[in-house]
Amino acid sequence: MSVLLNKDSKIIVQGFTGSEGTFHAQQMIEYGSDIVGGVTPGKGGQRHLGLPVFNSVSDAVKKTSADVSVIFVPPPFAADAIMEAADAGIKLIITITEGIPVSDMVKVKDYLKDKDCRLIGPNCPGIITPDEAKVGIMPGFIHKKGGVGIISRSGTLTYEAVDQVSRLGLGQSTCIGIGGDPIVGTTTLDAVKLMMSDDETEAIIIIGEIGGNMETDAAYWIKENRTKPVIGFIAGQTAPKGRRMGHAGAIIGGKADTAEAKMAIMKECGIHVVESPADIGKTVAEALK
């Protein structure tokens, strides 16, 4: 068992024929992901990268039985693309798009609350289950099949953690990039629950950031429900208050969302907290001994 994504996942790409969609669809196909087609409104009936293009997600689902969608649609249209995927019955919607207006995401979150689907992102690198499927923009070659589950709000910092883990001979069960925006479809806690109940995952790494309280929510749950080691890192120990550090969600608002406060609570809850980002791999290896 892996989390959310495996070799049987049938994947469509929304924003398929655009430059981002094309480039990353190619990369995903090369990795071995089962991409079954894509959606670009107005280009239905054409073929792109040897695969069918559909006018709507609902057409694509009917013809291909896709159950996963990855969205590269530009910010003004991305919220609509997410809701279209949910309406068409897609079970796992992974939104890579960065810069979706917050008010659009407020509507999306409300729209999805009664739907039987899971949103990952937006503004995230995607999900990978090594050697089975990659749905996102992460470099595939740094990953290695194994037992470490990784949950992260950031892109390149996740690759850093993956790389440290792989270099120590450990591998990953599934890596989930949950995204760096103030509203995300799947929270740290949601992802932790999935990983905690997954047999293949032996340890969990949480890569958090300043801003919000997703990591502390997860920490309090972990305290009561932990069955495997959890390692945590919070980026932004040196970030100033009130300045947005790149991600729309990474801004220190009050006392509780600083790196220091989050790390203290995570420690209290039995999480192995890493002070230096260079020690993430090492700490996992020790925790698994």
């Binding site: 980026a235 932004g236 980002p277």
Partner: peptide, 13 residues
């Protein structure tokens, strides 16, 4: 990357 940038600042400290 913003996350790696923050982590790098932390490493400098």
């Amino acid at each position: 990357g913003a996350g790696l940038a923050m982590a790098t600042m932390d490493l400098i400290k």
